[in-house]
């Protein structure tokens, strides 16, 4: 995300340097949204406990999506929650990032085949960092946050063409294959 809201890399040396500075600030002051979903949420809380203490890296939770920079999807997202999750993502102020924490958020995890589970949160929101594990250890979440920090601050990574972002809920609204009943 560029300084002026464009994804083009600024050519100007002044703007370019300022852009680097701003992105450095963004990467070093990532405030996650307080949004615990399932088992991973407990490990997410444990990432801020005295043992790991992600606050060392300038990260602390904000309760309101307007003031948050990072959404940590910590748990299974089912079809009932998916709309709310997307809404929360939409409510976050730009620039914003998403970390998919744990197997459930990555692809449905052990509940993948189930009728109510969204098979991967990246069907709803664009994900920047995926963490494997069920649940991932707090150290893994910290590493993911630091990876995200590097991604935000790094020029080459930052200006890579972003993956297509789903903008509506059509993934969830599809009426379903052969007789599966509509879920929304």
């Amino acid at each position: 995300m560029g300084l002026l809201g464009s994804d083009e890399r600024p050519r100007d040396i002044v703007l370019g340097t300022l852009d680097d500075l701003i992105n450095m600030a963004r990467s070093r002051s990532m405030w996650p949204l307080t949004f615990g979903i399932a088992c991973c949420a407990i490990e997410m809380m444990a990432t801020w406990d005295p043992k790991i203490d992600a606050d060392r890296f300038g990260m602390f939770f904000r309760n309101t999506p307007r003031q948050a920079d990072v959404m940590i999807v910590s748990g299974t997202v089912n079809k009932k929650l998916a709309k709310r999750l997307r809404r929360l993502y939409d409510q976050m102020a730009e620039p914003k990032w998403v970390i998919s924490m744990g197997a459930c958020a990555n692809q449905g995890g052990p509940f993948r085949q189930g009728y109510s589970v969204v098979e991967g949160v990246d069907k709803i929101v664009p994900v920047d960092v995926y963490i494997p594990g069920c649940p991932p250890r707090p150290e893994a979440l910290l590493q993911a946050l630091l990876l995200l920090r590097d991604k935000i601050a790094d020029r080459e990574l930052r200006y890579k063409k972003p993956r297509a972002i789903p903008t509506d809920y059509d993934v969830l609204a599809e009426p379903g294959k052969d007789g599966r009943l509509p879920v929304l």
Binding site: L3, A25, S29, R56, G58, E94
Partner: peptide, 19 residues
């Protein structure tokens, strides 16, 4: 010792979307 942490915070808020 984390001395410029809040400067980063301020800069980030400055560049964040004002909704």
């Amino acid at each position: 010792a984390g001395g410029i942490q809040t400067v980063f915070d301020a800069l980030k808020l400055l560049a964040k979307e004002d909704f």
